[in-house]
Design a protein around this nucleic acid. Structure first.
Length: 415
RNA sequence: GUGCCUAUAGCUCAGUCGGUAGAGCGCCGGAUUGUGGUUCCGGAUGUCACGGGUUCAAAUCCCGUUAGGCACCCCA
């Protein structure tokens, strides 16, 4: 038997309805913030991600689906979408369009990791990018938009973590200091953290290893290394969040895995997602466009929501799946009745209701089908009904029946 | 890449000391010739993941493989 590839999965009904609701909510909420959709290809030149995300990141160094095209060029299934959006921004000279460019996307991403709860090799992200401003008010609005979407989806109890990782110079000084402070304790660190000291010292900060905690606690905060400008930016973001009544936790140890982040970084956490509890991650990336070859500065900020995880949180919040949406099942007792039923179905659908027309069959069988389909109403069409042009409409929950004409039928089922 | 757990009907699972396959739900038919759900009666399901070993005998014990899950790493 051929099965879905490891780390991929089929989204079947009724779960697929939840995905649609989440995506519709995103389009509605983002539209309210004046964001417009961008659709970029799901594969790109490998160099885009290597340069954009960072050669040394785990994503690029070991998680990408990279393959050689027939002409020998190296292509990669996108592991994230920010680099692609910035590429499109540069390619189409969107800097020439007046104002702040506010773009959102919904689509699949690919990373070759070991699957676990909330993590898949093909997963979907809902994200947005605001490009063309380094005004901290944009940072706050972007974060507000995520909070608004979670709210629209009925997801309660998420936590917002924010931090500033400063500009590249501040961060370089901080990383150097971390290496210096960690060097004497290298033997006492966990094996993972020993490796991090050389690969990515910032990662030591959020180590889960018990033995690392005494050492981590004594490390300086990145906030001590921020320039005045960085500090001002971060203070402004917090002030603008306060204005909006958005609760947050300043977390100096919050570091993000992608190289391009500057200044603001943030994360939304949610319980009941398993160990992978981050439902959204984001941050500012003022230098990304230039590192991808833009001749003009294009400071931006964005986020991506793990749609798989958001759907999990929504399902958890509801505690169940949605009920059937079928309004009417038409039960024809003959071929002639079936032909009439199909015509009636068209009229009811035009009024906005969902209709299923059963095959010609015995009434008992049709009633069983109507019940299994979860129909709110069933319309009986037999010899008598055809002769009179008056049909039996039965409300399935109460069992009540009434004789209705075509016009009455349409009116009673109008959505 | 590393560790732990799991694999029996469409689904959720039971299967004792090794003795040759079970339940609930679902599905199909009937009780009911134009009335579903509830109830009652009847029925169909299976390479016990795959391969090997031990044994008179393996779903059960042992080894290997594959697949899945969870956790680490990392991240959404």
């Amino acid at each position: 038997m051929i099965r879905a590839i490891k780390g991929t999965r089929d989204i079947l009904p009724p779960a697929s309805a939840v995905w649609n609701e989440v995506e519709q909510a995103a389009r509605r909420v983002f539209g309210g913030f004046n964001y417009q959709e961008i659709r970029t290809p799901i594969f790109e030149e490998t160099a885009l991600f290597a340069r954009g995300v960072g050669e040394e990141t785990d994503i690029v160094s070991k998680e990408m689906y990279t393959f050689e095209d027939r002409d020998g060029s190296s292509l990669t299934l996108r592991p994230e979408n920010t680099a692609s959006v910035i590429r499109a921004f540069i390619e189409h000279r969107m800097d020439q369009i007046p104002g702040l460019k506010k773009l959102f996307y919904i689509g699949p991403m690919f990373r070759r990791e070991r699957p676990q709860k909330g993590r898949y090799r093909q997963f979907s992200q809902i994200g947005a990018e605001a490009i063309g401003s380094d005004f901290p008010g944009v940072d706050a609005e972007v974060i507000e938009m995520v909070a608004a979407l979670l709210d629209a989806c009925g997801v309660k109890g998420s936590r917002l973590l924010i931090n500033s990782v400063g500009d590249p110079e501040s961060r370089a000084r901080y990383v150097a200091k971390l290496k210096e402070d960690l060097a004497p304790h290298i033997e006492a660190l966990s094996p993972d953290s020993q490796r991090r000291v050389t690969t990515n010292p910032l990662r030591v900060l959020d180590s889960k290893a018990e033995q690392d905690q005494p050492i981590v606690e004594k490390l300086p905060s990145i906030h001590d290394f921020l320039t005045d400008a960085c500090r001002d930016h971060f203070a402004a973001v917090r002030r603008y969040l306060d204005d909006r009544g958005i609760a947050y936790e300043v977390t100096p140890r919050l570091v993000r895995g992608l190289d391009y982040y500057t200044h603001t970084t943030f994360e939304f956490l949610h319980g009941a997602l398993g160990a992978q509890n981050a439902i959204c991650g984001g941050g500012r990336y003022n230098g990304l466009a230039e590192s991808l070859g833009s001749k003009v500065a294009a400071p931006g900020i964005g986020f991506s929501i793990g749609e798989d995880r958001l759907v999990m949180a929504v399902e958890e919040a509801r505690g169940g799946t949605a009920a059937s949406v079928l309004r009417l099942f038409i039960a024809p007792m003959s071929d002639e009745a079936f032909r009439k039923g199909a015509v009636l179905a068209g009229a009811v659908r035009a009024a906005g209701a969902s209709v299923e027309v059963g095959p010609p069959a015995k009434l008992k069988r049709l009633m069983e089908l109507a019940n299994k389909a979860g129909a709110a109403y069933t319309l009986l069409i037999g010899e008598d009904e055809l002769a009179k042009g008056s049909y039996v409409l039965k409300a399935m929950a109460s069992g009540e029946q009434a004789h209705v004409s075509e016009a009455e039928l349409v009116e009673r089922l109008r959505a």
